[in-house]
Design a protein around this nucleic acid. Structure first.
Lengths: 215, 215
DNA sequence: TAGCTATAGGGGAAAAATCCCTTTTTTCTT
DNA sequence: AAGAAAAAAGGGATTTTTCCCCTATAGCTA
């Protein structure tokens, strides 16, 4: 029986090293072999130029240069048979969805039990899939079509937001934008509804969090 | 010779487990012993109620409930002799500074070599300190007075900010914090002055930009 | 063409946030 | 223990924000 070849792509050296130890620990049959490690997607690309190729790649999302999304995209295109297990801190729905849509074989949070990590590896090695609870939930919700809808904002609304995160009063914003303060009030109201916020403060927070404005 | 007692506070289970392996790996003399692990500051508090106490605590910053800053603050107050080694992903200057000011014995990035981790432990165990390059740089810059102006906030003020970036009214915040709305108003005023902002919106923006709060 | 929708704007009022100034309570320091 | 400093709180006034309900105009479209 051939060993299952594993690669780890993560920018945190300590995490990689620790992970290797953890994998070997639960591997009394010596079924796994760590083929290579990479700091980020670019380094992984280099190592995926020549065989041998790994069977499973443990992939982080948040990395410098070439991140997890781009890396998986590249992998699907060039090495469609390599199985990807995403291991990340990110439980954000958008991240999970994006990865699921790209067809990764598993999505787990880094805060899982060692036993679960082994289960995930077993499962994937056996041609199965493994999703954390959070990921499964997101899948469920999405299949039910309850979710989605990334709101569409008008040009004016976006401009208004840029001013709304400053110290300016609505009157000053109105003057700046050459509109009535009442119109500004309308933008505010619309945005509150669209973005599900209740105050100017949370509007600002939402804008920052979703990259609508530069911090 | 007594063993050096170590505790690990980090919300990522896999990282904790891996880290333990890494520590033991380089520890041929069996000088280290992992006394306990904790998911976050609150859990750590629990475990620090009764002796034995650890000599060194490896601490992450970004954790749920009680984060690294608050945890270190608590430790300094209640267990001043415990040495803290901050291990984090955060290389943000404000984070480094804040930790340095609180007197942690070391600050290293999670992306370091295993050998460096061991060096850090050795150094701290021997009553020394260990700072990563990034942390040293920040120190240098700061000692030269080039930078500065990172104001000192009280615990209450920081807690207030966490609420101030939400939809809560000051009345609700006051109730939540078990204080008069007038006291809250005082915090607000003080913060406006300290942070040079004029409205709750820009207070929130400032807090996010300078890492005073999680987004 | 009547109807719909998006955009701009108005009146007015309640609720919150902001400001200024004073008093009480607690904590820390000699 | 007296005095100073910091933290907590109150009074009261002004500004802003937030809400609700309403009108006008232009562009589209069934």
């Amino acid at each position: 029986m051939n060993k299952i070849q594993i690669a780890i792509v993560d920018d945190h050296n300590l995490f990689r090293k620790g992970l290797i130890r953890l994998i070997n620990m639960g591997d009394s049959l010596q079924r796994y072999n760590i083929l290579f490690e990479a700091d980020n997607g670019n380094q992984m690309k280099e190592k995926m130029k020549l065989s041998p190729f790994p069977d499973i790649i443990l992939m982080d999302i948040d990395m410098p240069e070439l991140d997890g999304f781009e890396s998986v995209e590249w992998l699907q295109r060039t090495h469609g048979d390599v199985k990807v297990l995403v291991m990340t801190m990110l439980e954000k729905e958008s991240a999970i969805l994006r990865m699921l849509r790209m067809g990764v074989k598993g999505y787990i949070h880094k805060d899982i039990e060692v036993a679960d990590l082994h289960a995930a590896l077993e499962s994937i090695a056996a041609n199965g899939i493994y999703y954390s609870e959070a990921a499964t939930e997101v899948m469920q919700q999405n299949l039910n079509g309850l979710n989605n809808t990334t709101v569409q904002l008008s040009e004016k609304e976006r401009e208004f937001i840029k001013f709304a995160i400053t110290d300016m009063t609505y009157q000053q914003i109105a003057d700046q934008m050459n509109l009535s303060v009442k119109t500004i009030d309308g933008y505010r109201e619309t945005l509150f509804r669209k973005l599900h916020v209740k105050t100017r403060v949370t509007l600002a927070m939402h804008a920052v969090k979703h990259g609508l404005v530069e911090l």
